[in-house]
Every structure is written in structure tokens, then in C-alpha cells.
């Protein structure tokens, strides 16, 4: 039973990811006094793109066709490393949070190659910028994860969430608060959200992630978009897992799973609202301000880690 739940929860995350993106879009529309499309619109977009003909550049190589599958599968595998409803993950025996970071680096590596593969200057520009942002976001991301690891003595996501969930509100000390803020900033950068990148535009001067995948179409595009929706869902879940894990199901019985699901939905809703608020209230940063933004995230994470690991404040 428990094993089945552990494998079902990444599946839930993967299938619900477009809904989360849909909710973000809807909330943003409401905040901007627009009506906006329904929350299920991303599913319709995916279905539409899946049925379309694919146009591939004649300059591109076999790597270009492989990218959507690498992106999707690595992101999906990363989902198997974190707890969602039940405190534990299917791949706890095979990997941990460090593996999670590098599993997420794998699609980026391939997508950046894809940006160069078609030979267009836009793609190359997107790849270059994406790698610059990623290389400054990654240290901050790892420092955040280390803060959680130091607090609990393990790098595996399942046990971390379980330990924190059982240790009461005291676990959310100053270190955790700093790390939470840092991870939120990192999530904005990693998922290509405002103020780092704008997911809603194809203007050449502003785009990073969208420029990189510009040449993809049809089912390739569908898979890539799905992968980035999963990534957003994964980051929001991770924020909930590592810092506010209370209410997570500790055992695989129906009552606590139901409760866990409900609590998770609430937590995600709050995070989605926060994301929508940030995205409506900030303007996109100039590209060379982004490292400062991520530098701030890194400093926050480092302070969190110092107060948690060295000064032993909090838990």
C-alpha cells in the first residue's frame, strides 16, 4: 500500500502540474482586472500542441528531437525524489536533494544545447542567458537544501519532511525563515517567472527560457511546456515540504492521506497566490540585475545555513 502511494504521488504531481500553472494564470488575470482563461486551459493547450504537426529546423541534429524526452523524464524522475502527500518518496533509496538539483540541471543542459542547435541567434542568446542565471541560482538552491539537511541530519527529502513535520512549529526557526525566502527567490529564477524571466512573452529582449525553446513545436513543445509546468509544481511542493511540512500524511491510511491532500492543496494555493502577487506587482529585471537578485538569494541561504548549521539556532 505504502509503496503504491509513494509511486502514485509523483504521478499526481505530474498530472496536476498544468492545473497549478492554470491557477497561477487565472489568479494573475484576476489581479490584473482581466477575466482570463479557465484553470484547465493548460490541459487544452497541451492537447492541442500534441496533435499538431511538428516543424524541425533542417540545421538541427538528433539531439534536438531528444530534448523534450530528456526534459520530461528527468523532471518526472526529480518528482519521485520529494514527498508530496505522504512523508516519504519513492526514490529515497536511490537519491536525495543533491541528486534532485543535478536531475534538474540535466534538462537545462539539453535545452541549452537545443537553443544552439537550430543555428538561430535567438536560441543561442536564450541558452547563454539561461546558463548564466542557472549557474548563479544553483549555489543558492544547494545552500537552501543544505540548511534543511543540517537541521535534520540527512539529505534525503522524505526523512527531512518527516522529521520536520513531527517536530512542531519550533522547527521553523530563523534559519528556516531565511532559507524559505531564499528558496522562493530561487524558484522564481529556476521556473523562469517574473521578475527574472517572463513566461508570457516572446519579445526578444526579455526572453530567456522561451528563447531557448523557440524552435520547438508540436508535440516537442507540448512535452517541454509540460516539463516546465511540472518543475513549477515541484518547486512549490518543495517549498511546502521543507519548511511547512505540517499536516503531511505520516502513514498510508485513507484518513491521513485525505487530510494530507487537503492541506497540501491549501499550502499550494497560498504559494500560488504569493507567486501571482509577485508576478503582478514587479517588473522584469534587467538581465544584469538578475545576478544581484540571485546573489541576494545566495546570501539569504548562506545566512540561513550559518544560523542553522554553525550557530545552531532553532531546532
Amino acid at each position: 500500500m505504502k509503496g503504491a502511494i509513494l509511486w502514485a504521488q509523483p504521478l499526481l504531481l505530474i498530472l496536476a502540474a498544468p492545473l497549478i500553472t492554470g491557477c497561477v494564470k487565472k489568479l494573475k488575470a484576476v489581479l490584473q482586472n482581466r477575466q482570463g482563461a479557465g484553470v484547465f486551459q493548460p490541459y487544452r493547450d497541451l492537447l492541442k500542441n500534441l496533435q499538431k504537426e511538428e516543424v524541425v529546423s533542417e540545421t538541427a541534429s538528433w539531439i534536438f528531437r531528444l530534448i523534450p524526452y530528456v526534459a520530461f523524464s528527468a523532471t518526472a524522475a526529480a518528482c519521485c525524489l520529494i514527498p508530496v502527500v505522504l512523508a516519504g518518496s519513492a526514490l529515497d533509496f536511490a537519491g536525495d536533494l543533491i541528486a534532485l538539483v543535478y536531475l534538474l540541471a540535466l534538462p537545462r543542459f539539453f535545452m541549452a544545447l537545443g537553443g544552439l542547435d537550430a543555428g538561430s541567434a535567438f536560441g543561442g542568446m536564450g541558452s547563454s542567458r539561461e546558463m548564466m542565471i542557472a549557474s548563479t541560482a544553483e549555489p543558492a538552491f544547494l545552500m537552501v537544501l543544505f540548511t534543511a539537511a543540517v537541521q535534520t541530519g540527512t539529505t534525503r527529502a522524505g526523512p527531512i519532511a518527516a522529521v520536520l513535520a513531527q517536530s512542531g512549529w519550533g522547527a521553523f526557526g530563523p534559519g528556516a525563515a531565511l532559507a524559505f525566502a531564499a528558496l522562493f527567490l530561487v524558484a522564481l529564477a529556476e521556473c523562469g517567472r517574473l521578475p527574472v524571466d517572463n513566461p508570457a512573452t516572446h519579445l526578444e529582449l526579455t526572453m530567456v527560457h522561451e528563447a531557448m525553446i523557440l524552435e520547438h513545436s508540436g508535440r516537442s513543445l507540448a512535452l517541454l511546456e509540460w516539463a516546465s509546468q511540472i518543475k513549477l509544481a515541484l518547486f512549490l511542493t518543495l517549498l511546502a515540504d521543507l519548511f511547512v511540512p505540517w499536516g503531511m500524511a505520516m502513514s498510508a491510511d485513507l484518513a491521513s492521506l485525505g487530510l494530507g491532500l487537503l492541506v497540501l492543496a491549501l499550502k499550494l494555493l497560498v504559494l500560488i497566490l504569493a507567486l501571482a502577487l509577485v508576478e503582478t506587482s514587479t517588473a522584469k529585471l534587467r538581465l544584469f540585475r538578475v545576478p544581484d537578485f540571485l546573489g541576494a538569494a545566495f546570501v539569504l541561504a548562506l545566512l540561513g545555513l550559518l544560523s542553522q548549521g554553525v550557530l545552531k539556532l532553532g531546532l
Partner: peptide, 15 residues
């Protein structure tokens, strides 16, 4: 993807 989209239809075109 195969089940939803059917046989892959791919066209090559210049960038």
C-alpha cells in the same frame, strides 16, 4: 504522446 497525437508528423524547414 503517440496515443494522443497519433503517428508523428514532422516537417523539416529552414530556421
Amino acid at each position: 504522446v503517440r496515443l494522443i497525437g497519433g503517428k508523428p508528423r514532422v516537417r523539416t524547414a529552414p530556421t
